[in-house]
């Protein structure tokens, strides 16, 4: 199975898919002709060496890519069978339904922990409704017990792992359908990483997760589906192979995937 084939996962329940998606920074093509479907309530891991376009691909899925001043996109991203790049689509509405967690924890430094948790639209709520929304989100992010007594404190007093879970809570509070995660544990220590991985598994009961990761063990541990990307000679990221994680890590069908997961390069 190769990248040129149509979406490799037979979509039992596809919520989000790309169709011949290419992404550019100026004239440089960072992602080339990727077609991939993301299964509902599953964790899809995007793996590959640095510079293979996996983060750019992820950023195309909620139209955050276009915030770069010279960014552009061709192809389609289908969300609930509608192209999110269709002329007239409101990117703000898309981003509320496709949340994102970033590589480095980035809570809003001037807001309290509570206000961070309800940052997506909590401004109009009264204090009680705010607390309800925040508690639900913070529980979903496995952070409630650690912060329930200091909701009015600054998020900067939390540890890195706690900050990252706060960011997850912030994304979850918006009640999205899909949660995109860009190397969510890259800046965390092993213990905090384990907590986040556990959390990802529980979040997958409710959301569709797409996670970029450098860490192949992590991909093997937490994901249901894995997609391997690789940059070609003109540094354009291509989708090489996508399959059930168990299969991709044991019997990859592409030679390059095998080389990568056995550590022969990258």
């Amino acid at each position: 199975m190769t990248a040129s084939a149509t979406p490799a996962i037979a979509p039992p329940e596809t919520v989000l898919a790309t169709d011949d998606l290419s992404a550019y920074y100026g004239t440089h093509q960072a992602v080339g002709n990727v077609s991939i479907a993301f299964r509902r309530q599953a964790i899809t891991a995007l793996i590959g060496p640095s510079g293979c376009g996996k983060t750019t691909l992820l950023r195309c899925l909620n139209r955050i890519h276009e915030l770069a001043f010279d960014a552009c996109v061709s192809g389609r991203v289908l969300f609930d069978n509608a192209d999110i790049y269709e002329w007239g689509t409101d990117p703000m509405a898309i981003r509320r339904r496709i949340g994102m967690v970033f590589q480095r924890p980035n809570p809003f430094p001037t807001l309290s922990i509570l206000d961070n948790a309800v940052a997506a639209g909590g401004r109009r709520l009264n204090r009680r409704a705010k607390l309800e929304v925040a508690e639900r989100a913070l529980r979903a992010a496995a952070l409630w017990d650690e912060v329930k007594d200091k909701l009015s404190r600054s998020p900067l007093q939390l540890s890195g792992g706690q900050q990252q879970r706060l960011c997850i809570a912030r994304a979850v509070a918006a009640e999205p359908d899909v949660l995109l995660m860009d190397e969510p544990t890259a800046s965390l220590d092993p213990i905090a990483t384990a907590v986040i991985e556990e959390l990802m598994a529980s979040l997958a009961n409710q959301f569709t997760l797409v996670a970029v990761t450098h860490n192949m063990q992590q991909a093997a541990r937490v994901s249901d589906v894995a997609a391997f990307m690789l940059a070609d000679e003109s540094r354009t990221g291509r989708l090489i192979e996508v399959d059930d994680t168990a299969k991709l890590f044991t019997k990859p069908s592409d030679r390059r995937t095998e080389d990568y997961i056995t550590g022969r390069f990258g």
Binding site: N62, I64, L67, M92, A93, I94, R95, R96, G99, M100, F102, R104, N106, P107, F108, P109, T110, L111, A119, A120, G121, C167, R170, A171, A174
Partner: peptide, 27 residues
């Protein structure tokens, strides 16, 4: 102000104006 913060706000579905007044300026 780190780009991260702006993106965090945009990723929640905020407009650029909301991002500027509620996240960037306070920071």
């Amino acid at each position: 102000i780190p780009r991260d913060l702006r993106e965090a706000s945009m990723a929640l579905g905020s407009t650029k104006w909301e991002t500027a007044t509620r996240v960037v300026l306070p920071a």
